[in-house]
Simulated assay, not measured.
Amino acid sequence: MSENHKKSKQGLCHTLRYALALNADFYENTRNTPKTRRLALTIVILAAISYAIGSAVILLINRATVFILLLALVINAIAVVAGYYFWTFTIWKIGQWLKPIDPTYGDLLVPIGFAYAPQVLNFLTLIPLLGRPIELILAVWSLLAVIVAVRQGLDISTWRAAFICLIGWPLIQIAVGSVQLLQQQLVK
């Protein structure tokens, strides 16, 4: 294994550990560099893959056709990534509206991408009878991580950060639920 690959793997594990722990200093000291942008996007992509795998297993159990399975994998992955960009955009716009803020949209992509770390565990939703509760726990954990990231990134109070994040969060949850309903209808 090359030295760069080892460092990259350590960087991802380190980032996931601090992001999952909701470490405020970690989010405060996150800088928007090409490396951190790649790392944040990697976490979001891993979250999308994890979500898609969990959904795919459930679809396989329900005997979905190969076409439906592949379509669901693509839709799930795109939904998670699109949700990340949409949620970041709503946070940035509402943050500008409430208080003129310095960070740009691109500056917020990194800490919010790191806050998607709990979603990397989304494959656990395939556990029978625990899938939906696990999904809700991971969604709330991600919400808390995004609140910490926004509080640190915009240098605002926790209550303001929670308000800003809670505006876009229900929209994301509704979109995820809609994708799941669509998949259930396609399988029938």
Rank of each mutant, 00 (worst) to 15 (best):
A24C: 10
L171I: 07
F26C: 10
V150W: 01
T158F: 12
L98R: 12
I101G: 08
P111D: 05
V66G: 12
A64L: 04
F26H: 03
R160D: 15
F123S: 01
V187M: 03
Q183C: 07
R151Y: 10
G168S: 07
L171T: 14
I91P: 12
M1G: 11
A149K: 01
L144I: 13
A21G: 12
R17H: 13
I147C: 02
A64R: 00
L129I: 14
I58G: 14
K7E: 10
S50Y: 00
V140M: 04
F163Q: 04
T158Q: 11
I164R: 03
L46D: 07
T36A: 10
L181P: 12
K9D: 13
T65W: 09
E28W: 06
P170C: 08
W159H: 15
S55V: 15
L136W: 12
Q96F: 13
F26Q: 05
P100Y: 15
L109H: 05
A82K: 04
L73S: 13
L59H: 04
L130W: 06
A79M: 06
R160Q: 15
L121T: 05
I101P: 02
P103A: 02
V110P: 09
L129A: 15
L186I: 11
L22R: 06
R160G: 14
L60G: 09
N4S: 15
P34N: 10
L70V: 05
L130N: 08
A21P: 08
P118R: 00
W169K: 05
G113R: 00
K7R: 14
K9H: 13
T158G: 15
Y84V: 03
A115W: 01
F26W: 04
Y105N: 09
I49A: 10
A40E: 00
L73T: 12
I49S: 06
P118F: 00
R17M: 10
K9C: 15
A52P: 04
L182F: 10
Y18W: 13
A77F: 04
L130I: 08
Y27I: 03
S178A: 14
